[in-house]
C-alpha cells in the first residue's frame, strides 16, 4: 500500500444476498491521479465505485478517503452518474450552482464568478438558462461534469461517463474531463467498458478480475514525463487489451485522432 494513498480499500468484500460480488479487494489511489477501472461485464466495477461513493456499504473490510471514513468524507467526493442525474427543473446555471448552495456557500458573488468561469471552460455559457430537455446529449454531459466539478471535489467518481455519446462528442468530453482533472488536481476514478477511453483518460489503469484481484497498470500512453517510455495510443490500447486477454480491434476514429 502506498504511504501517500488518498483512497484506501482494505479487504473489502460485498455480497448481494448469498452471491459474492467483490471478494477481499485491496486498492489504494494516490491524490491527484486519474484511474481507469476496467474489467469484463459482471466483475463488480460499478459496485466498487458505489462502495467508494458510500451509496452501499461493504459486507466486510474498510474504505477510507483522505484518512476518514466514507461517511465523514462526503462533500469532498463527487459522482458522475451514467444517466447523469440532471434534474429536469434546473436550468444549466441552477444545476451547476446547486452543489454550492448545498454546501451553504456564503460568498455568493465569488461563487457566481466561479460558476461563470467554469461554464465558459465547459462551453456552456450561452446555454446557462436552458433546461436539460433543451440540450443535446453532449451538452447535458458537460452540465453534469460542471456540476460535479464546481465544488472542487478531491475525489471524482464517474460511472461510464461517455457511454451514451457519439464518437466525436465522446472525444470532446474526454478532453474536457482530462483538462479539468489536471487543472483541479482531482483524484479521478472512472469505470469504463471502452479501452480507448481508459487509455486516453487514465494515468493508471486498474483491471478488475472476477476473483476480486486488481491488476494495476501504468498507462504506457499516459507516461508523458518520460517521452522514451511513451507508447502511441494504438499500441497502448493493444497492450491493455493483451493484459485483459481481449482481441477486439481498436476503433478507427480513436487511432486516427490520437
Amino acid at each position: 500500500m502506498s504511504i501517500k494513498a488518498f483512497v484506501v480499500l482494505q479487504d473489502v468484500s460485498f455480497r448481494f444476498g448469498d452471491q459474492p460480488i467483490l471478494d477481499h479487494v485491496e486498492l489504494s489511489l494516490n491524490k491527484g491521479t486519474s484511474y481507469a477501472l476496467i474489467g469484463k461485464s459482471g466483475v463488480g466495477k460499478s459496485t466498487l465505485l458505489n462502495l467508494i461513493a458510500g451509496f452501499i456499504q461493504p459486507s466486510q473490510g474498510s474504505i477510507t478517503i483522505g484518512g476518514q471514513t466514507v461517511k465523514k468524507s462526503k462533500g469532498s467526493t463527487a459522482f458522475l452518474f451514467q444517466d447523469l442525474g440532471l434534474f429536469p427543473w434546473q436550468t444549466v446555471i441552477e444545476a451547476v450552482m446547486m452543489p454550492l448552495l448545498l454546501k451553504k456557500e456564503k460568498n455568493i458573488e465569488s461563487a457566481k464568478e466561479q460558476i461563470i468561469s467554469l461554464l465558459k471552460e465547459m462551453e456552456l455559457e450561452s446555454l446557462k438558462d436552458k433546461y436539460p430537455h433543451e440540450l443535446s446529449g453532449g451538452q447535458r454531459q458537460r452540465v453534469a461534469i460542471a456540476r460535479s466539478l464546481i465544488s472542487k471535489p478531491e475525489l471524482l467518481l464517474m460511472d461510464e461517463p461517455t457511454s451514451s455519446l457519439d464518437a466525436t462528442t465522446k472525444e470532446h468530453i474526454q478532453q474536457l474531463i482530462l483538462a479539468q482533472q489536471q487543472k483541479l488536481k482531482t483524484t479521478l476514478l472512472f469505470v469504463s467498458h471502452d479501452i480507448e477511453e481508459a487509455v486516453f483518460l487514465g494515468e493508471t489503469i486498474l483491471i478488475l478480475n472476477k476473483n476480486g484481484t486488481i491488476q494495476e497498470v501504468k498507462n504506457p500512453y499516459f507516461a508523458q514525463k518520460n517521452a522514451k517510455e511513451q507508447l502511441g495510443f494504438y499500441e497502448a490500447c493493444i497492450e491493455i487489451r493483451k493484459l485483459m486477454n481481449m482481441e477486439t480491434t481498436v476503433n478507427e476514429h480513436h487511432t486516427k485522432n490520437r
Binding site: 451509496f55 462526503k74 462533500g75 467526493t77 452518474f81 442525474g85 434534474f87 452543489p99 454546501k103 465544488s151
Partner: peptide, 12 residues
C-alpha cells in the same frame, strides 16, 4: 429516479 436521490447523497 433513484439516481436523483444518489445525486443528493453524493453532495451530502
Amino acid at each position: 429516479p433513484a439516481s436523483h436521490f444518489k445525486v443528493m447523497n453524493s453532495f451530502a
